[in-house]
Amino acid sequence: MTDELRYGLIGLGMMGRHHARVIAETHGITLAGVVDEAGDPRGVAGNAPLRASVAALIESGIDAAVVSVPTQAHEAIALELAEAGIHTLVEKPLTADSPSGTRVARAFDDAGLVGAVGHIERYNPALQSLRERIDAGDLGDVYQIATRRQGPFPARIADVGVVKDLATHDIDATAWLAHSRFETVAALTASRSGRAHEDMVTATARLDSGVITNHLVNWLSPMKERTTVVTGERGAFVADTVSGDLTFFENGTLALEWESVMAFRGVSEGSVTRFALNKREPLRLEHEAFRDAILGESSDIVTMTEGLENVRVAEAMLRSAASSESVKVER
């Protein structure tokens, strides 16, 4: 490899444009070529040449690639890159379904390549700080994780519904925060915008660890909300990933004199702390982690195995909604 890793970018849509900007700004990597059938009308690729195909991009000589195209195209492109020995970051979800995700994850594993999935919320400063504090024991035992992710419909999404697009953020972040996989899920979905795919979901779940979870996700709210609440033995953390803020609501304690309720182990309102965090751009952190994984310096990426697990949980949510029953996540 050269001193700088040569990156190829496939897809210059809304997310691809952000990838192009961050690649250009990140030390140790350079944008060596891009592929998009619509060209580069906004000029986001800078001096990087526009290639006619993924094959042409590979032939030009790249060390790594970022795949930021519609979900249905992920498998074919990722497998082509794996066969060529190219380390790859695929935007979430990994693939449209778990069989294709299995093929992709296996291909990168068998080739000994770094395969990552762009679950960017893991790099949000509020969630990173939250995980560190949970791991340090600041919350004691974790009881429940609840997320709310809602906002207006993004016109760029056409090939999957809100479960595989938006909800996979919450699936990934929840399992990551709890260090535990999803065991069972129960979900309800609705399609109110006239599209073929669902645009609303509410889901509850139990993790292998016993933590219970709740997720409210939709594309039909006029306001944007991205909130994660983790409740535990010593209080509750509230992470707002729009602002990158993290707040801790501590359990208060009151001496009880009422004999009939003394056996109830309840809590009352205590101190509230809003933490000052170093707020770096999550996408930049994601690219730094991918770069470092390629160089063998770190493994702080969302692996394709984890990305596949997120797809399986999303599929379980859709099966549950279709059957109106709680279902187990397939392993």
Rank of each mutant, 00 (worst) to 15 (best):
M1T: 04
D3L: 09
L5T: 05
I10F: 04
G13H: 03
M14F: 09
R17E: 15
V22L: 13
A24Y: 10
I29Y: 08
D36G: 07
E37V: 14
P41Y: 15
G46L: 06
N47P: 01
L50W: 09
L50N: 06
A52L: 12
S53N: 08
V54W: 02
L57P: 11
I58H: 10
A64L: 03
A65Y: 00
V69G: 06
V69W: 15
P70L: 07
Q72S: 14
H74W: 12
E75D: 07
A78F: 11
A78P: 10
V90G: 03
V90T: 07
D97G: 03
V104Y: 01
V104Q: 09
A116G: 07
I120H: 02
E121A: 05
A126L: 07
S129A: 15
G137E: 13
G140I: 14
V142S: 10
Q144W: 04
R148G: 00
P154K: 08
I157N: 04
I157L: 12
V162C: 03
V162Y: 02
D165N: 10
A167I: 01
T168D: 02
T168Q: 03
H169E: 09
I171V: 14
A173E: 10
L177Y: 05
R181T: 09
S191P: 01
S191W: 00
S193E: 02
G194Q: 13
G194M: 15
R195K: 13
H197T: 07
D199T: 11
D199Q: 05
M200P: 01
D208R: 00
S209Q: 06
S209R: 04
T213G: 05
V217D: 00
N218T: 06
K224F: 15
K224C: 07
T228C: 15
V229T: 07
G232T: 11
T241M: 11
S243M: 13
G244L: 10
D245A: 12
D245P: 02
L246Q: 08
N251S: 13
G252R: 04
L254V: 12
L256V: 14
E257K: 06
E259G: 02
V261M: 13
F264P: 03
V267S: 12
E269I: 06
G270W: 12
R274N: 08
N278M: 11
K279I: 05
K279Y: 04
L283P: 00
R284V: 11
A289C: 12
I294S: 00
G296I: 08
S299M: 13
T303Y: 10
T303E: 10
T305I: 12
V311P: 03
V313W: 00
V313S: 00
L318T: 02
L318M: 13
S323P: 09
S323W: 01
E325L: 04
S326G: 03
V327P: 05
V329W: 01
